[in-house]
């Protein structure tokens, strides 16, 4: 199975990526590749550039240098729009539409029908609220509508910006099981989070700090390098080790 996966082309190849916003450099010389059919966790403190990197991958961000290749094409290429799904950090849905109408609206723009919309609503656990207007939902429910809108077109690459923020532990486990099932079917997922315990559910991790790539490793490697089972502590130790390295 591993050999079969290795034969597949990489889903995302980033090299020398630079992004500036105004005079600030938001991302500095990022280079990495992400294999297909895996869950990659994008982790780092807030302000580390996670959202900017995701925007660059879906092609919604002007880049200052380097390249981002997604499924063999430059990021943002029109042919990718059928294959890439994006959930923005702010729930980008219409508050005056019902749950199902939102999902059907964004689905229809991608050619998905009513049944696909219903499947996406079921997938995020909002079946009972499908006729409720989005503005009458709680924060966590609202963001799940946004997630359903990203799932509805069944993209090959799913880029999810903090999809589990504001969700209770039961739902969070539910969604991570859903993500694992999607990955098992061959979908590539890139998921940002600042909850380190979620990192354990990922196949590999990209650790970002102040716009630089601190490390790309598996959760097991992170535990080993940090000499602890606590992923959060391991991440902190990694940062401290790097700071010490810079200082000496």
């Amino acid at each position: 199975m591993t050999a079969q996966r290795a034969a597949e082309p990489d889903a995302v190849e980033v090299s020398g990526l630079m992004i500036n916003r105004g005079r600030h450099r938001v991302l500095t010389d990022l280079s990495f590749t992400l294999p297909s059919g895996r869950i990659t966790g994008l982790l780092g403190p807030s302000g580390s550039g996670k959202t900017t990197l995701m925007r660059a991958i879906v092609g919604a961000q002007r880049i200052g240098g380097g390249s981002v290749v997604v499924l063999g094409r430059a990021a943002g290429h029109p042919s990718l729009r059928r294959r890439v799904g994006y959930m923005t950090q702010d729930p980008s849905v219409y508050p005056d539409l019902t749950v199902e109408a939102n999902v059907r609206y964004f689905g229809a723009m991608a050619g998905a029908g009513r049944r696909d919309a219903q499947a996406a609503v079921d997938a995020v656990g909002l079946s009972d609220l499908r006729r409720r207007k989005a503005r009458d939902l709680s924060g966590g429910q609202f963001s799940r509508v946004s997630l359903a809108c990203a799932l509805v077109a069944r993209p090959v690459l799913l880029v999810l910006d903090e999809p589990t923020v504001g969700l209770d532990p039961v739902l969070r486990v539910d969604l991570w099981n859903r993500f694992a099932a999607l990955a098992a079917e061959g979908t590539t997922l890139i998921i940002s989070s600042h909850v380190m315990e979620e990192a354990g559910r990922c196949d590999s991790l990209l650790l970002l700090r102040e716009g630089r790539l601190l490390a790309q490793l598996t959760p097991q490697e992170l535990r080993r390098r940090g000499a602890t089972d606590d992923l959060e502590l391991a991440f902190l130790r990694l940062i401290q080790a790097q700071n010490a390295g810079v200082a000496s």
Binding site: E8, S36, R82, A108, G111, A112, P155, V156, A184, G186
Partner: peptide
């Protein structure tokens, strides 16, 4: 294991048909 590398939905037809269809969906919204 079959890898999902193809899009689930193909284009709905000519660019003009797509334009009319998308425009109508957005108008309804």
């Amino acid at each position: 294991m079959t890898a999902v590398t193809q899009p689930a939905f193909e284009s709905v037809g000519s660019p003009l048909a797509q334009f009319v269809s998308d425009g109508w969906i957005a108008t309804r919204r």
